Amino acid sequence: MPQAPIDAYSWPTPNGHKVHIMLEECGLPYRAHPVNIGKGDQFEPGFLAISPNNKIPAITDPQGPDGKPISLFESGAILVYLAGKTGKFLPEGDRARYEVLQWLMFQMGSVGPMLGQAHHFRIYAPEKLAYAIDRYSNEAKRLYGVIDKQLSRNKFIAGRTYSIADIAIFPWLRSWENQGIVLTDYPHLKEWFDGIAARPAVQRGVQVLAEHRKPIRDEKEREILFGKTQYQRR
């Protein structure tokens, strides 16, 4: 039976792009539904029903593992699910599989949160706090160094083959300038980055919903993204 389209509820952010790229790489049919996080779409009951943490992305697959629909949130979990569904980009062997998963967790636990904070305090914070800017900019440089060292010994993040670890990390490094990074300081990372960026599926993935993303335009959007609205109990 042909695969029914997967519904991807997302926005053109690094976490959103992870899933867009994975869907493109796997060749799965899907429909991308914009969840405008600047307008507060992430707090709508319909979205919260599938993403209770009110964060994008989330997916609904009408043909889940048991043939019944399944909804998932958290981008890392979605990558693991899609890899399991298609048998792509996550090795079957235990050793190689755990190599990939540890680098996926590295992205989820370090690269995303820390580079997100670097973005916030360097670009979006209404008050420029030198301590915060220095702290997260330095952490960004440290993380780039970790990745560069890993890529000095491996063609891809988790070894010799392209995997969900590469798919997870790449979108977060696309804004390296905003993170205070000089990419040429990390030659192994830069070579890898340029190679990933040249992949046709990656190029398609980062264009998904891209036309919807605009700079923060007013204080209402800023408040929704960074103010009290996001902390309300729902």
Rank of each mutant, 00 (worst) to 15 (best):
V146C: 10
G145A: 07
P187V: 11
K190A: 06
K220F: 08
Q102S: 14
D41H: 14
V202E: 00
Y136D: 06
G46A: 14
H188F: 08
A130N: 04
F121L: 00
R135A: 01
Q232F: 09
E211A: 15
L82D: 06
H20S: 11
F226R: 10
L101A: 04
T161W: 05
A158K: 01
I167N: 08
R213C: 05
V146G: 11
I133H: 02
H212M: 07
S51A: 15
Q232L: 14
R135N: 02
W103N: 02
V146F: 12
P62Y: 07
M1C: 09
L28T: 07
I216M: 02
E139I: 03
L48A: 14
R213S: 12
W176Y: 15
G112M: 03
H20L: 00
A165Y: 00
K190W: 00
I78E: 05
R174G: 09
L104C: 04
R217G: 13
F106S: 10
A168F: 09
A77Q: 09
T184R: 10
S163K: 10
E92M: 12
A4L: 14
P29T: 07
L151T: 03
K18W: 09
F170K: 13
R213H: 14
I167M: 14
H212L: 05
P126K: 13
L189Y: 04
E221H: 03
E74I: 12
R222V: 00
D185S: 14
R222S: 02
G46N: 12
T86E: 09
K85L: 15
R153N: 13
A58N: 12
W103C: 03
V146I: 15
D148V: 12
K141S: 13
Q63A: 13
A49R: 14
Y9T: 11
V111Y: 10
G76L: 10
I70N: 03
A4T: 06
A32Y: 13
K68E: 14
R213W: 01
I123C: 02
R142H: 04
R234V: 08
A83I: 02
E219F: 01
Q42N: 09
A49Y: 13
A197P: 05
A77S: 15
Y30D: 05
P113G: 08
D41E: 14
G93Q: 13
D194C: 00
H119Q: 01
V19Q: 01
L173T: 15
D66H: 10
K155P: 07
I196E: 02
Y136T: 08
I147R: 06
E177Y: 00
R135E: 03
I6Y: 07
D166E: 05
P52M: 07
K128T: 08
G205Q: 02
